[in-house]
């Protein structure tokens, strides 16, 4: 079986600086794998081990996504091969366009039976790329998955929705979006990281990117909330101030 896992490579939000004019400065930011996608990679890796399947990662992002440390990070987590489109033409794609590029990679990665995606990316947190990918490939989609077992031509999933838990059989091939609880990311050892450097990394430029349906008009730091910021180290003064305020 061929398992794919989609992940997003983005700037680390810890490194985002706010410039004097309120604009966001990403120039000093390291590239990282979006946090919840690490859970998706782990989920795919565990399912790959359980079923004796290959696990390949697919990703689309800006030119900066072609970062040797991040690529090794992905491949040190039980992933056999990476397919990445890294190009500034694919830096600010909406969910539909992202899914269209991922669909190209899914086909380039020598077929797929199961595609795992994370809950949402740290930048937009739209939770839409998985379902758009399923629509693009015309395959079933389920979200909120916490457990998956492959039985021949279907994958049996437990999905945790807001008010109900559903047990479903999903025909393969399909896209499943997992909840972060489904798998906790491993901590890769030095041996895994060294081995990762020798695994195949297929990095390509963007080609024929669809016109965006959604585009960015502006990006800025949020307006600061006005607070008193009275900070105490003496407990009695603190309690007195809180008491007076409430």
């Amino acid at each position: 079986m061929n398992i794919l896992v989609a992940c997003k490579i983005i700037p680390d939000d810890q490194d985002i600086q706010i410039a004097g004019d309120g604009s966001l400065d990403f120039s000093k930011a390291h590239q990282i794998v979006s946090e919840y996608d690490l859970n998706a990679i782990e989920f795919a890796a565990q399912l790959g081990e359980a079923t004796g399947s290959s696990v390949k990662a697919i990703s689309v992002g800006a030119a900066a996504a072609d970062d040797s440390k991040v690529k090794k990070n992905i491949l040190s987590r039980g992933v056999d091969e990476l397919f990445l489109i890294a190009d500034d033409a694919t830096a600010d794609l909406d969910s539909a366009a992202t899914a269209a590029e991922l669909a190209k990679l899914a086909n380039a990665a020598d077929g797929y039976d199961l595609i795992v995606v994370g809950t949402g990316s740290a930048d937009f947190y739209a939770k839409q790329v998985g379902v758009h990918l399923a629509a693009k490939l015309d395959v079933p989609y389920v979200s909120g998955v916490t457990k998956a077992t492959v039985n021949g031509s279907t994958v049996s999933c437990t999905r945790v929705l807001e008010n109900v838990v559903e047990n479903v059989d999903v025909p393969l091939p399909c896209v499943v979006s997992i909840l972060p609880d489904a798998a906790l990311p491993r901590i890769a050892g030095m041996k895994d990281i060294l081995a990762a450097g020798k695994k195949p990394m297929n990095v390509s430029a963007a080609e024929g990117v669809a016109a965006p349906a959604v585009s960015t008009v502006s990006l800025a730091a949020p307006a600061a909330v006005d607070r008193k910021c009275e900070v105490f180290e003496d407990i009695d003064s603190f309690v007195a101030a809180v008491k007076a305020a409430l």
Binding site: I16, L24, A122, D123, F124, Y125, V214, L219, A220, P222
Partner: peptide
């Protein structure tokens, strides 16, 4: 945007 680090206006 980025968990509240920014505000994005999209069209």
């Amino acid at each position: 945007y980025f968990g509240g680090n920014g505000v994005r206006t999209a069209n």
